[in-house]
Structures are given as C-alpha cells and as structure tokens.
Amino acid sequence: MYAQQVDTGSKSLKTLDEMGPEERHFQEKVNAETKIEPKNWMPDGYRKTLIRQISQHAHSEIVGMLPEGNWLTRAPSLKRKLQLMAKIQDEAGHGLYLYSAMETLGADRDEEIEKLHRGEVKFSSIFTYPTLSWADMGAIGWLVDGAAIVNQVPLQRCSYGPYARAMIRVCKEESFHQRQGYEVLLTMMREGTDEQKEMVQDAINRFWWPSLMMFGPSDDNSPNSAQSMAWKIKRHSNDELRQRFLDQTVPQLEFLGCTAPDPDLKWNEDTGHYDFGAIDWQEFFDVLKGHSPTGIERIQQRKSAIDEGRWVRDAAVAYAEKQKASAA
C-alpha cells in the first residue's frame, strides 16, 4: 500500500458509551464487520481519514508510473516493453478507481490532485527514489509491488465498502506485477552476464531499505494506528506487516542468489521470524518532508502534465457542451 502516516485527527479512542447514538450504531456495524457504504452515516473523522488515505493511495499509483516511465522508452525487448506498458496502464487504472472510491466520500479528484501539486499532501516515499538501471524495473515489481500487496491484502476487508472492493481488483493485478518483476530479476541472474547480475544486486541494495520503510513508522511511533484499527480501516500494525513482508521476501532473495544490504538479517529459530537491522528513520522522515532524491521532479512532472493538458481538457468540455446544445 502506498499510504503512510495517515492522520486520523483523533487523540484518544472513544468507548461505545461515550458515543452518541449515530456514532454508536456506526461503530457497532464496523465491529460486526458490516461494510459502511457511501450513503451511510459516518463520523467526520472517519470520512476525513479515508479521504486522506485513499487520495494518498491514488496519488501514489499515479506518481508511481513515473519511475517506470523513466525506463519505458528503453525497455530491452518486445516482451519486456509490452509487460511494462501493461503494468503502467494498470497503475493508471488503479489511480482512476481509487479516485472514484474517494469521490464517493464527497471529495473532488481535481481538488485533491491540486493539493498534491501544492505539496500539501503526500505520495508514498518509495517513489521519490530514482530508477538507475533496467534491473530497477524488476526490483520495483518484486519488492515495491510485493510490499504493497502485503499492505493491501488486509484492505480488501476494510470497513469502507468502495475502498475494500477497489482493493480486490488492485491486489489481483499487483500479484501479477510482482511475479513479473521477480521473473525480470531471475532471468538476469540465471541467464544474464556478470554485468547484469551486478545490476540486479545493485538494484536490490538501493530498493531494500526503502521498501521496508513503505510500511510506515514503527508501532511505538505511529500515533494514528489505534483509531484506524478501531474503525477497521487498518487491520494490522506497521511492524506486523513489515515482518510479514520480510519473512516472505528473504527466501525469494536467497532463491535469486542475491543478498540484502543488512548484516543483521538472520533467521531466528525462537521467534520463527527473520531478525533485521535498524531502519534509518531519519531518511524516511526526511523523504516525507521533501528532502528526497527525486521527489521535487516527480511532482513537477505531474503538475506540468496537468497544466500543459489544460487546453485539451477545456476543448473536450467545450465540445461536449456544443454537442449538448445542438442536440437540445
């Protein structure tokens, strides 16, 4: 998933007794796993939290096209070019139906996009990293889409119906992307030259830690999690999901014949999980604040696409109005 540090606006959880009748009814529905639909009453905080989360998620799908677009015109074979085009097309589609899900909450797509371009809202930290070789296309598919899936699978059971249903389709397509990404790397490791193998290891070295950061701050530094969990927007803690991702990824890393840039990574018999080294949270918070390798360029590119396309959208609107007028 591509939403990090979503502010719920709430400092402490209310008990059912502290809630008014509407809110209590809402919370009881959530507790009973009944989906909340657009026309149902919902607390303001719930609505705002979802708008923040879904818009951040949608923005990330769209900004996430750019690091891949960086290699699209240089894809090395017909098959790889077709795969990457299809993946990017899927991402644009994910963005579209996430924005639609968000609009069911009363938010406006264009307004939310403007907020992104003004730097008022975020997109996932992972997409501020540059893609420096073709192997990055494999690493993104495998690690980034892989981390996204671990985060998004529980969102298929999110209490808000439209978001949960959007996630079902998104997850299906992303599993496909993840397998393709892994296959890109596996082909280079198994059939490639020494230079290609170095490219793969270098891509993993650069994307390893940023992928682990995708799950957001550690639990003791995640002030919004409790409310999101009570609303069943979120089902598992950041650290829990990070561990799940790591446990499934390390065997794949070994099968690839590559290593992680983490000397502390090792299997722990007692816990049944992999132990790993300390994450550089300073880097994560710097990136979120905009002190990032390509964050500025990503937003500039999105902004100029929308700005330069204004005359096209205006023409489409003017034409539609003329058609309507002549039909009337």
């Binding site: 750019l66 677009g69 929308i306 396309g309």
Partner: peptide, 9 residues
Amino acid sequence: CGKAPALEE
C-alpha cells in the same frame, strides 16, 4: 507516459 493531459488519456 506520465505526461498525458488526463488520467483517462
């Protein structure tokens, strides 16, 4: 890619 005038495009 990433430069179209609208997401639909």
